[in-house]
Design a protein around this nucleic acid. Structure first.
Lengths: 188, 188
DNA sequence: ATGATCCTTTGACAATTATCAAAAAAAGTC
DNA sequence: GACTTTTTTTGATAATTGTCAAAGGATCAT
């Protein structure tokens, strides 16, 4: 299999040749510049993305301030999951923090594949399960933790983000102000 | 369908008669007293629960203190999802805050049903998706919010928990100390 | 390269939240 | 129902984190 997107998904669960071909057929590879907006606010998000290479940031506005909700780097999934799964508009915006190569699959295509192939439905279940585990992990890292602990958690878990993501965007990702993150970083 | 557990799951996605029967066949109804422990810490959790009536609390210990991770009431799912999905031990404990009627299904049975019936696999996917949406919602409610906002969020979203869950357990659920929650409640 | 813009750091101070302790209230037990 | 135990409230104080402002750096576009 040449398609890195299909290869990555196959890690979650084996797919028949037919499913792999069908999946490859509905996925599109995009080469995009830094700053490109993958998902706009207020619309139903119709695509889910796989970041072959690059970095995306999901954020929303709260009282005029940007709150970073999620960061997806090479080999990870990006998407406005609330909107994508619930089929409702959502305020989240996804944009690229680096020039990136991403794969896109539409909701419709996925539903079609789920209906057609049991093994794709299974893959979908496992993908969502994986997403749930990731979110729980992130939740735990922020729950009942001090700002310093949250920073250290990121340092232990995803240190590369500290290099690749501007401090101001990381701060709200960690649930603190830029000033606090700057001070913590200076002092550790 | 007489089985309230199967009826509840059917809301997520239609099931064939056969699937419904198979699901009913592997689920067991339990009538349990307050305080009963559904899931112990440090073990791989082999069951997922549906609360027909009652209330459960998921918590773990952090530096000697109990942190409330999740609360499941009538009609909701309870389970140590990290352990259940990842098949790894986890520190979370689930116990009942009220005498409850719950339905239990084992991991093995579910896997068997997933493999046997495509529509069960779909139901599983939708159940996990629903869980992911719930967790994201909870995450959003705590992210970049003050203690007062978090309290008001609970008041707006799940006010019944304020009546049914002891304040100390709610406090860590909301990411604050019992003293802070007590003061906020007195003042609002 | 240069200027403009945006991001980060630092400082002073204010607000929020945590901690510790003790009293008051509520819940569980015999 | 009285007693014990646990939970909640309240107070005083400390620690953490946020806010506002300004200076210093970095980045971007021309």
């Amino acid at each position: 299999m040449q398609n890195p997107f299909v290869t990555a998904l196959t890690q979650f669960s084996l797919l028949s040749e037919v499913s792999q071909q069908d999946l490859a057929a509905v996925s599109r590879r995009l080469v995009l510049e830094k700053g490109h907006v993958l998902v706009q606010a207020g619309k139903v998000s119709d695509y889910i993305y796989f970041i072959e290479q690059g970095l995306s940031r999901t954020y929303y506005l709260k009282e005029g301030r940007e709150v970073t909700d999620w960061l997806s780097a090479d080999g990870e999934i990006a998407g406005s999951i609330v909107s994508f799964l619930s089929r409702q508009p959502d305020g989240r915006i996804i944009h690229l923090l680096e020039p990136s190569v991403v794969w896109a699959v539409s909701y419709q295509s996925l539903e079609m594949l789920y209906a057609r192939h049991h093994d794709m439905e299974r893959l979908g279940r496992l993908l969502v399960s994986h997403g749930l585990l990731q979110l729980q992990h992130r939740f735990d890292a922020l729950h009942m933790a001090t700002a310093l602990e949250r920073y250290q958690g990121l340092l232990a878990n995803k240190p590369s983000l500290l290099q690749r993501v501007p401090l101001g965007m990381l701060a709200s990702y960690l649930g603190m102000t830029p000033e606090t993150l700057s001070r913590i970083r200076a002092q550790v």
